[in-house]
Design a protein around this nucleic acid. Structure first.
Lengths: 102, 102
DNA sequence: AAAATCAATCGTTCATTTGCGATGAACAAA
DNA sequence: TTTGTTCATCGCAAATGAACGATTGATTTT
């Protein structure tokens, strides 16, 4: 059968949900977010103490969470304090909840 | 600095959440699930009609959703009817909602 | 029995993710 | 100024993901 495959485009809801889901798609990122949520905030050092992974790996996961918008980092030399971005957190919460609601 | 990197192990909550999140981490899978949720069920053919992607690609995404447990396929020769797995759907809903709740 | 239909799977290609050690940049402390 | 601390980034390797066309297997229809 011959199918015409045009360019697929997604709604922004689909893309935003996928973006947040991707951020949550690795268990260590779940752990990091849970940790941050409990502490309100924390320094990277606490995470590298708690999580048995290379510092560079944790830094990489933090970067991904930051790029998804779920966390933010405040530089407080020589350390960096990470916190959950409450605005994005609430947006994600709502988007997931709407998605599962219907 | 010398760090000891033991084997990391995750809780089953972390793993289950990550598994569902991964299933939702591609916009076309979001679209498929939304479609299924609206129709209750549908045949693969409806999806390949609706979504401008190769049949094999859609089939692959269906497989991933099935492996995550979110959908199930009933073979009704020569077609296959896909439905959301309500049990898994509710579990996912609760797990995401718990996660964002705290 | 032959042809048609539907969907899964195979094989390929290319891109992205994951993890690590090593290095670098910024700043504080000695 | 040198040393130490903290974290980000680079560079690499291995694994996984995404997309496609082609093929196969199951079943119906002709």
């Amino acid at each position: 059968m011959q199918r015409t495959i045009s360019e697929i485009s997604y709604t922004s809801k689909e893309e935003i949900l996928a973006k947040y889901a991707k951020a949550l798609s690795h268990p260590v990122r779940i752990r990091i977010l849970t940790f941050l949520e409990n502490q309100t905030c924390c320094f990277t050092g606490q995470l590298t103490d708690e999580i048995p992974m290379a510092q560079s790996t944790i830094s990489q996961h933090l970067k991904e969470l930051k790029e998804a918008g779920l966390i933010q980092g405040d530089v407080m030399p020589p350390r960096v304090k990470y916190c959950v971005n409450q605005k994005a957190w609430l947006e994600a919460k709502k988007i997931f909840s709407d998605f599962f609601e219907k």
